[in-house]
Simulated scan of single mutants.
Amino acid sequence: MSGESVKLLGYWASPLALRVKWALKLKEIEYQYVEEDLQNKSPLLLRYNPVHKKVPVLVHDGKPVAESLIILEYIDETWKHNPILPQDPYERAQARFWAGFIDEKCVPAIMSAFTNQGEEKEKAAKEARENLKTLESALGGKDFFGGETVGFVDIAAGWIGLWARIVEEIADVNLIDAETMPLLNAWFGRVLEAPVLKECVPPRDKLLEHSRGFHKILTAASS
Rank of each mutant, 00 (worst) to 15 (best):
I170N: 02
N116E: 14
G147L: 11
A124Y: 03
C106K: 04
F152W: 11
L139M: 08
A109Q: 09
V173M: 10
G158P: 06
I110G: 06
A113D: 03
G146E: 00
W159V: 01
A156W: 06
L184P: 04
T134G: 08
W159Q: 09
L184H: 07
V107Q: 03
E120A: 15
G146L: 04
A125S: 12
G161M: 02
W163E: 07
A156M: 10
D154K: 04
W163K: 04
N116P: 00
D154Q: 03
E136G: 04
D172W: 08
G141D: 15
T115A: 15
K126Y: 06
L139T: 05
S112L: 10
A109P: 01
I166G: 03
A138G: 06
M181L: 07
F114T: 07
K133G: 04
E104W: 10
K142C: 12
C106R: 04
E136F: 09
T180H: 14
V167A: 08
N185H: 15
M111L: 15
Q117F: 09
W159C: 02
R165F: 04
G140P: 02
I155A: 01
I102T: 10
E136Q: 13
G161Y: 03
D103H: 09
E179S: 13
G140H: 02
A138N: 11
T149C: 09
V150W: 05
M181A: 12
A124W: 04
K121S: 13
N131K: 11
N116R: 11
K105F: 07
V153R: 05
A171G: 04
G140L: 02
E130K: 14
N116L: 10
